[in-house]
Amino acid sequence: MPELRVGDRQWSVTAGTNLLDALNQNGVPVPYSCRAGSCHACLVQCVQGLPSDSRPDALSAEQRQQGWRLACQCQVVEDLQVHTFDPQQDGRPAEVAAADWLSPNVLRLRLTALRPLRYRAGQHLVLWAGNVARPYSLASLPEEDRFLEFHLDCRQSGEFCDAARQLNIGDPIRLGELRGGALQYDPDWHDRPLWLMAAGTGLGPLFGVLREALRQDHRGAIRVIHLAHDTNEHYLAKPLQALAASRPNLTVEFWTPAELPAALTQLRLVSRQTLALVCGAPDSVDVFARRLYLAGLPRNQLMADVFLSRG
């Protein structure tokens, strides 16, 4: 049986055991969210030996050369020594600039990075509150905002959301890995119709993408659709309406589940050149995507980012 070592601890592991499970079940806490290789919260560094990796494409060549792997996607097949991500040593320092409620269930968290961080609107960043980590999409715009903004869905209790509720201005927080994500604005889209369709806090990264499109003076029609649990949860209604009032090519729509079937039926593409960016929980993304395909949107013109709930 292979031996797994972390720090001064060592134990035997059945060959083929998932690395994330082998660590967490033996008292080495490694955070995770999606278990699909998307969130990157379970990043570990292999110091000696290598696991079998089912998602070698999930990390950059440089990260892999340094031994970093996503524990959820790896199986222990030989003796392995692992360094787990230490937010105090490996993370970037930041502090809370603001924490306020945009709706009864959406907490807006604004952070100030104590070292410069280069990012694009719509990217993901792993946040560490103590020993609890979760990946969140950036809702801020690097060229305009002096803070990093995140929209947290706190409808259900969870370790990170519970910790975030207690944060105060000036509290320290650590930043983990910054990664791509499917949602970003491409300047080559300048004249094409652009649909931004979000469910819940999936609106956060799309709000950043929208502002980037407007900053680059996008000339095509832009349609923003936000699906929320009820009218109180259209948490960016006012800023979106203000943007629409000043931009003749921008329209915004606010849907609830009761209105969804009829609203979907009315969706019509005005152009085969339309691009659609979709973000939210898996069920909502699937509903939006299926309707867009039925409306004639080519599959390569839809970009989707799925939020998996694990507060």
Rank of each mutant, 00 (worst) to 15 (best):
153 D>F: 11
112 T>H: 15
309 S>N: 06
136 Y>E: 00
71 A>L: 06
194 L>A: 07
304 A>C: 05
158 G>I: 02
145 D>L: 10
273 Q>M: 09
128 W>A: 07
83 H>V: 03
72 C>F: 03
209 V>S: 04
187 P>I: 02
137 S>Q: 12
158 G>P: 00
178 L>P: 00
234 H>Y: 01
84 T>V: 15
190 H>Q: 12
18 N>T: 03
227 L>F: 06
8 D>E: 08
222 I>L: 07
219 R>E: 02
161 C>S: 15
28 V>E: 06
138 L>I: 14
296 G>A: 08
22 A>K: 08
211 R>A: 10
182 A>Q: 10
254 F>V: 00
129 A>Q: 11
111 L>M: 13
242 A>V: 10
302 L>T: 01
215 R>Y: 12
298 P>S: 06
17 T>S: 15
197 M>H: 10
213 A>R: 09
73 Q>N: 04
241 Q>G: 01
245 A>R: 13
104 P>W: 06
301 Q>D: 00
41 A>D: 01
160 F>R: 08
297 L>H: 11
25 Q>A: 13
27 G>F: 13
140 S>R: 12
279 C>N: 07
93 P>I: 04
136 Y>D: 01
258 A>H: 15
105 N>V: 07
34 C>V: 05
192 R>W: 05
239 P>G: 06
232 N>G: 03
138 L>G: 04
92 R>Q: 14
165 R>M: 11
222 I>N: 02
21 D>E: 08
256 T>M: 14
93 P>R: 14
19 L>A: 12
192 R>S: 06
247 R>Q: 12
62 E>W: 10
123 Q>I: 09
273 Q>D: 08
38 S>Y: 14
144 E>M: 13
237 A>S: 08
146 R>T: 05
103 S>V: 02
209 V>N: 04
179 R>S: 11
233 E>T: 05
89 Q>W: 01
29 P>K: 07
130 G>K: 14
63 Q>F: 11
15 A>D: 00
149 E>C: 09
278 V>W: 09
288 F>V: 00
255 W>E: 00
133 A>C: 01
152 L>V: 11
188 D>R: 15
219 R>L: 03
47 V>Q: 14
31 P>T: 06
255 W>Q: 04
58 A>S: 11
266 Q>E: 05
45 Q>Y: 03
7 G>I: 12
166 Q>Y: 05
140 S>G: 02
303 M>Q: 09
177 E>F: 13
183 L>G: 01
286 D>M: 10
142 P>Q: 06
41 A>N: 04
154 C>W: 01
83 H>T: 03
99 A>S: 14
95 E>F: 07
237 A>K: 15
303 M>G: 02
245 A>S: 09
281 A>C: 05
